[in-house]
Amino acid sequence: MMTFFKWHFIVQRGAWAVLLWPFLFTKCIPLDCQDCPSISQEKLLDRVIQHAELIYRVSEESCTLFEEMFVPFPLRLQRNQAGYACITKALPIPSSKSEIQQISDQWLLQSVLLLVQSWIEPLVYLQTTLDRYDDAPELLLNKTKWLSGKLLSLEQGVLVLITKVLNEGMVSTSYTEQAIFQYDMQLDMLESIIKDYTLFNCFKKDAHKIETFLKLLKCRQTDKYNCA
C-alpha cells in the first residue's frame, strides 16, 4: 500500500507539472514568423518540422489524458474496433502511400495547410467544451490551449514556406471550412464525451499526418530517390 508520504510526493510532483508545463517547451522550438521571411527555406522547413513534431507529441498526451479521465472503457473499445469519422475526411488530402509518393512538393504543403487550417476552429471548440466537465484537470486545459496557439504559429510558418517553395508573394489564407465543423453546445454529457474524444483522436491522427508530410518534403530535398 502506498504510504502517505509517497502519495503526498506524487501529488506535489503532479501539481508542479501542471504549474510548470506551459514553460517547458518555450525555448525548445521557436517559430516566430516575424523572422520567417528572412531565413532560408531549409532552416524554415526544419523549424516547421520541429514545431509539427511537438504538436503531435502534445496531441498524443492530451488524447491519452482525456481518455483516462473521462472515457468509459467500452467507448475505448468501440474506437479501436470501428473508429469514428474525422472532420477532415472529406478534404482532398492524399491518404494512401502511393498517392503521397506521387504528389508534388507544392501539393504536399497545400495538404499540410488544409489540415492545419481545418483544425483551428475545432481546437477552439474543445477549449470551450472542456469547461463543461467537472474536475477537468488544469493540465488538459493548458495543453489544449497550447495546441490551439501553436497551430496558429504553424499555419503562419507553412504559409511563408509555401511562398519560398513557389517563389511567389504571400499566399492568401482564403480557405474556409465550409461547414466542415459545426458547434453544438446542447449535447448531453455522454454525447459530448464521444464528440470530444473523437476530436482528440482525429486531431492526433492528422497531426501525425502533418508531421509525416513535412518530413517527406524534407527527405525529397536531401535524398530525392530514397524517400519512402
Results as ranks from 00 to 15, higher is better:
residue 86 C to A: 07
residue 86 C to N: 02
residue 87 I to C: 03
residue 88 T to W: 10
residue 89 K to W: 10
residue 89 K to F: 03
residue 89 K to C: 00
residue 89 K to E: 15
residue 90 A to V: 13
residue 90 A to C: 08
residue 91 L to V: 13
residue 91 L to Q: 10
residue 92 P to F: 03
residue 93 I to Y: 03
residue 93 I to R: 06
residue 95 S to Y: 14
residue 96 S to A: 05
residue 96 S to Y: 08
residue 97 K to W: 00
residue 97 K to I: 09
residue 97 K to E: 09
residue 98 S to L: 11
residue 98 S to K: 15
residue 99 E to H: 08
residue 99 E to C: 08
residue 99 E to R: 05
residue 100 I to A: 07
residue 100 I to W: 06
residue 101 Q to H: 09
residue 101 Q to P: 00
residue 102 Q to L: 11
residue 102 Q to W: 05
residue 103 I to W: 09
residue 103 I to K: 11
residue 104 S to F: 07
residue 104 S to V: 15
residue 104 S to R: 04
residue 105 D to K: 13
residue 105 D to I: 12
residue 105 D to T: 11
residue 106 Q to S: 12
residue 107 W to T: 11
residue 108 L to D: 13
residue 108 L to T: 04
residue 109 L to T: 05
residue 109 L to E: 06
residue 110 Q to V: 07
residue 110 Q to D: 15
residue 110 Q to S: 12
residue 110 Q to W: 07
residue 110 Q to G: 00
residue 111 S to I: 08
residue 111 S to W: 08
residue 111 S to F: 07
residue 112 V to W: 06
residue 113 L to I: 03
residue 113 L to V: 02
residue 113 L to G: 01
residue 114 L to Y: 13
residue 114 L to H: 10
residue 115 L to Y: 04
residue 116 V to D: 00
residue 116 V to L: 09
residue 117 Q to H: 07
residue 117 Q to W: 08
residue 117 Q to N: 14
residue 117 Q to P: 08
residue 118 S to A: 15
residue 118 S to W: 07
residue 118 S to N: 14
residue 119 W to K: 05
residue 119 W to I: 01
residue 120 I to E: 10
residue 120 I to F: 00
residue 120 I to G: 07
residue 121 E to G: 02
residue 121 E to F: 03
residue 121 E to I: 12
residue 122 P to K: 01
residue 123 L to R: 12
residue 123 L to C: 01
residue 123 L to D: 06
residue 124 V to L: 13
residue 124 V to I: 08
residue 125 Y to K: 02
residue 125 Y to R: 02
residue 126 L to S: 14
residue 126 L to E: 04
residue 126 L to Q: 12
residue 127 Q to Y: 04
residue 128 T to C: 10
residue 128 T to F: 11
